[in-house]
Amino acid sequence: MTKRMIKNASYEGERPLFASRHLRLEDVIIYPGESALKECSDIEAVRCEFRGKYPFWHNDGLLVEHCLFREGARAAIWYSRNLHMKDTRVEAPKMFRDMDGMVLENVVLTDALECCWHCRNAKLRGVQAEHGDYLFMHGENIDVDGFRLNGNYSFQYCRNVVIRNAEIHSKDAFWNTEDVTVYDSVVDGEYLGWHSRNLRLVNCRISGTQALCYAENLVLENCTLGEDADLCFEYSSVHAEIKGRVHSVKNPRSGRIVAEEYGDIILDEHCKAPANCSIETGKAQSGEAA
């Protein structure tokens, strides 16, 4: 269907383009106001700038390209479906909430606080997120490649996540997750992966104190642990093949750990049943991405 075109215009106030259909915006500025494009469908926004809050709520079918979301455009895209955003800069916090069907390509989020909560069926390519505390809470079916994150408590309570070629600096990442796999990445942060189920790390470099505790069916393939990754695997069921040295292991519950060298191995009366984890010295096998 042919779209109605709006070019080189500006809007302000409350709901100036409410319930629009089949609309293309080019070089448009949305000044401070509220809910500029609420309840819309089949919208394209190209080279636009958003300064007012809540511009896209309850939308279906949204293309955002070469746009800028200023700090005032907080909580910009919520309760929407079928978003494709590319080559865009987001300076506003609390972006994306309760989304279904979301593709982000070459997107920079400079204040990613509380972004991407309750988002489903998301694909991220070349995304950078700064100040990203609580990124992707309760997400599901997430596919990530070429990703950089600075921000704590990321991906908590997520399910069915695949991450490749990432650099994640995040305390308490992957808590209470289920079916998460991370390939060829740097994962840096305290208390990684606690209370997770089916967390798999392949060809990753891991750092941060008390990593990978209280985990169920934890798998590490060809991973490297930094010297600050101490007191690892407490009360976890784990199958791990680790390159190099493990600074310290504490009371793994079950499974098998193979590393080239160990610092401290702590097995005391507090270890939980079945308390039969095999801790071995040897070389890790190279992990391969599925």
Rank of each mutant, 00 (worst) to 15 (best):
N59A: 09
L37H: 00
L37F: 01
K53A: 08
I43M: 08
G33I: 09
D27V: 04
G61A: 09
S41W: 06
L23M: 12
V46M: 09
I29L: 15
K53P: 05
Y54E: 03
D42E: 15
E39A: 04
C67D: 10
L63D: 08
R47Q: 12
L23V: 06
Y31A: 14
H58L: 06
H66D: 13
Y31M: 15
E26I: 02
C48A: 03
G61R: 04
H22G: 14
V64P: 02
G33H: 11
L63F: 07
I30S: 15
C48G: 04
A45P: 11
G61I: 02
E34Q: 14
A36C: 09
L23I: 09
L23G: 06
K38V: 01
G52C: 09
V64K: 01
K53T: 07
K53W: 04
K53H: 07
I43F: 06
L63A: 08
F56H: 01
L37P: 00
P32C: 13
P32G: 13
L37N: 01
V46Q: 10
K53M: 09
H22D: 15
E26V: 04
S41D: 13
S41C: 14
G33W: 09
Y54R: 03
E49T: 08
H66E: 14
F56P: 00
I29M: 15
I29N: 15
C67G: 10
G33M: 10
G61M: 04
D42N: 14
G52E: 08
C67H: 07
C48R: 00
W57F: 00
Y54N: 05
L63W: 03
E34W: 10
P55V: 05
C48M: 02
C48L: 01
H22T: 12
W57R: 00
H22R: 12
L62N: 02
S41F: 09
C40W: 03
L37G: 00
R24H: 13
E44D: 14
E26S: 07
N59F: 07
D60W: 10
S41Q: 10
E34P: 10
K38Y: 02
R47L: 10
L62S: 02
V28P: 11
C40P: 03
E39L: 08
E26R: 05
D42G: 12
S35F: 03
F50D: 05
N59G: 11
N59S: 11
E44G: 11
L63N: 10
I29Q: 15
V64H: 01
H58F: 07
E49W: 01
